[in-house]
Amino acid sequence: MRINLSKKKIEDPFIAKVEELSNQNLLACYQCGKCSAGCPAVSQMDILPNQIIRYAQLGLKDDLLKSKSIWICASCFTCNARCPKGINIAEVIEALRQILLRNREDHVKVEKLTDSEKGDVPPIAIISNLRKFTS
């Protein structure tokens, strides 16, 4: 996979926004990979949790905002519990979702959910899904 780095990307306010929304210091990450090693969702992810942090450090905004991974992560907090540098990776991923959701780019379209998708699941599933995936 080819990654284009540029000074412009590194200076983009996107990095500061992610740090602010997540209250995390991205540069604290030393890429040990422990977050990805324990993440139950990696088999479905296109960018792994440690890579998400690396991409965010480098300001790779477009790659991050179009990645599947940010919608596959279920905020299970396993990565947070294991990061030796105390980074809350789940919060960083939340910040990425928030950046899209705050621009009304919903991941789940309520009007497109079928009756069985809505009706067969308990209220707790619908409420949490819409809290995480819609603006």
Binding site: P40, A74, T78, V108, E117, S128, N129
Partner: peptide, 20 residues
């Protein structure tokens, strides 16, 4: 025992839940 069941993904991605 502490592995995530994929939680609210059950609404729009039930196949992930089935795998977990």
């Amino acid at each position: 025992k502490t592995e995530c069941c994929a939680s609210y993904q059950t609404v729009d991605k039930p196949e992930i839940v089935a795998e977990r």
